[in-house]
């Protein structure tokens, strides 16, 4: 059973998932059954340094840049409609290979073209984002976007950050106006 997180709640991975070497972030939603434009949700990741900015633009992992320069983070592919069961998009993070100057991995979820398509998470059925231990499949944290971020179009899901020698996960759950471009700009990506 996953820990149901409130905003800002911390999970120590050494306690929750002591053996975890590979973390997986899964994003899922149901394909649209009503008429209108498809719901296209995107999971992205920012590898940031001490000052909360990306090390470089190529440390912004998203649908057009699927692998980090170091190879520790891999975007498993962009799903445009939500077709299929379970996770529709996944980001795989090999924690042992994350370079030392990366202090934080920040995960975001955004709706592609939300403004133009007049969409928000609440209009998407069963949308969620979760992080789990890829070695065991055990879920660490989860946000039900349809329920708890219903009027948002972009959200910072949470961050994996270094705390001494261990990794911790912090749920952020903070909405963001302006879509992926605004989120990226916030973490110092040149758009």
């Amino acid at each position: 059973m996953a820990v149901s997180l409130v905003k800002g709640g911390n999970v120590s991975l050494t306690k929750e998932a002591p053996t975890m070497t590979v973390a997986m972030v899964g994003l899922g939603w149901d394909a649209r059954v009503t008429d209108g434009q498809a719901f296209d949700l995107d999971a992205s990741l920012f590898m940031v340094s001490e000052n909360d900015k990306v090390l470089s633009d190529s440390h912004f992992i998203f649908f057009n840049n699927k692998t980090s320069p170091c190879g520790s983070v891999e975007h498993q592919g962009d799903n445009l409609t939500g077709e299929g069961d379970g996770d529709d998009e996944q980001l795989k993070i090999n924690l042992t290979q994350v370079p030392a100057d990366v202090k934080k991995l920040v995960f975001s979820v955004t709706i592609y073209d939300a403004e133009k398509r007049k969409q928000n998470f609440g209009m998407v059925s069963n949308s969620f984002i979760r992080i789990f231990n890829n070695d065991t499949g055990v879920e660490i944290a989860r946000f039900d976007l349809s329920e708890d971020a219903s009027t948002e179009t972009a959200m910072i899901f949470g961050e994996l950050y270094r705390h001494g020698s261990e990794w911790k996960f912090k749920a952020v759950g903070q909405g963001f106006a302006g879509g992926l471009a605004a989120v990226a700009a916030n973490y110092g990506v040149s758009i």
Partner: peptide
Amino acid sequence: MINLSLGANI
């Protein structure tokens, strides 16, 4: 009274 935006729940 709450004005609901699309997708919002109560």
